[in-house]
C-alpha cells in the first residue's frame, strides 16, 4: 500500500468524528445558559479547530498553511482573558 493514499484515507476517515464534535460544541455555544458557558464552548471549538487545520494542511499537501493554527490559538486565548477581565472588574468596581 502506498503511504500517500494511506495517510489521505486516514484523514478522510477521521473527519466525520471531528464534525460531530464541532456540532456538539456549537450546540453548547448557541444555547449556553450563561455567558461563561458560551466562552468555554468557543474556546474548546477553536482549540480543536486548530488541530483539525493541521490535519487539513497534511490532506491538501500545503505545508505553508501551518501558521493559521498558531494565530487562531493565540487570539482565542486573548478572548478568554478579555472575558475574565470584564467579570473581575464587574465584581470590584461598578
Amino acid at each position: 500500500m502506498n503511504l500517500a493514499t494511506w495517510v489521505t484515507d486516514f484523514i478522510v476517515f477521521s473527519m466525520p468524528f471531528y464534525f460531530a464534535a464541532f456540532a456538539l460544541y456549537i450546540a453548547r455555544a448557541i444555547k449556553g445558559p450563561t455567558v461563561p458557558d458560551m466562552v468555554l464552548a468557543v474556546d474548546a471549538l477553536s482549540y480543536d479547530l486548530a488541530a483539525f487545520l493541521v490535519l487539513l494542511g497534511i490532506l491538501f499537501r500545503a505545508p505553508i498553511m501551518i501558521p493559521c493554527a498558531i494565530v487562531l490559538v493565540l487570539w482565542v486565548y486573548a478572548l478568554d482573558i478579555y472575558m475574565a477581565k470584564y467579570f473581575e472588574a464587574g465584581e470590584i468596581g461598578e
Partner: peptide, 15 residues
C-alpha cells in the same frame, strides 16, 4: 487557500 487572509482575519475578528 488564503493563509494571509486567515492571519489577518483571526487577529482582527477574534482578537
Amino acid at each position: 487557500m488564503a493563509p494571509d487572509i486567515v492571519l489577518v482575519y483571526a487577529a482582527v475578528a477574534v482578537g
